[in-house]
Amino acid sequence: MWFESWSDLMRVVLLGTAGYVTLVGVLRLSGKRTLSQLNVFDFVVTVALGSILATLLLSADVSWAQGAVAFMLIAALQFVVAWASTKWPAVRRMITSTPSLLLRDGVILESALRRSRLTESELRQAIRAAGNGDLANIKAVVLETNGTLSVISAQNFGDGSAVKDVESEASM
């Protein structure tokens, strides 16, 4: 249980190094999107890559070649889905959510918070983290498709063109 053999440890070291180098190579070839936090799909890709690396390291039944092919397959599928989502809006709607307005003109939108399963405390924390202390000075808080909260002050709102695609109960 604590130690089986030196050969098992050497296998982990060698395959771990080879798997790591292969993963970095695949990520460099596949582009920045593979590691981005743009939506749930991108998160799933990141988790899948980690799972493949863990399996490669710890399962004696998986060869380096199988791991390398799995890395390339996930990166290729992510590329295809990203390409399709830029070409066809229906695919984009299937894999990404839309941003949601949680606060408008200093007023917290309670129903939007409930739908997003967030609390007022979490919303206020994001506002404080953005360096604001007064809700009245906030024009909008948006729950982005990647789960982050964007806080837009009244001073920086401008013409509001950045929030035109935001889902809200009423337009801004």
Rank of each mutant, 00 (worst) to 15 (best):
73 L>G: 00
124 R>D: 15
154 A>I: 03
84 A>N: 07
80 V>W: 15
141 V>L: 08
36 S>P: 00
108 I>T: 15
128 R>D: 02
167 E>Q: 11
146 N>Q: 02
116 S>K: 10
11 R>G: 00
31 G>H: 01
168 S>Y: 02
38 L>W: 07
114 R>V: 15
89 P>R: 15
139 K>S: 10
54 A>Q: 12
120 E>D: 11
86 T>C: 10
121 S>V: 11
129 A>E: 15
67 G>A: 14
128 R>L: 01
75 A>M: 01
66 Q>A: 15
160 G>E: 10
60 A>F: 03
20 Y>G: 06
89 P>S: 14
98 T>D: 09
163 V>Q: 07
94 M>G: 10
169 E>W: 00
75 A>V: 03
100 S>W: 11
61 D>F: 02
68 A>Q: 14
163 V>F: 07
80 V>R: 08
69 V>T: 02
70 A>W: 01
124 R>E: 12
77 L>R: 02
142 V>R: 02
77 L>W: 12
156 N>R: 11
125 Q>H: 12
61 D>P: 03
43 F>C: 03
23 L>K: 08
115 R>H: 11
85 S>G: 10
21 V>L: 09
108 I>H: 08
13 V>R: 03
64 W>I: 07
164 K>G: 00
32 K>R: 06
65 A>Y: 15
152 I>K: 02
141 V>T: 10
93 R>M: 12
41 F>V: 02
140 A>N: 03
104 R>N: 04
92 R>D: 15
5 S>L: 04
56 L>P: 11
84 A>K: 07
25 G>I: 01
27 L>C: 05
119 T>N: 11
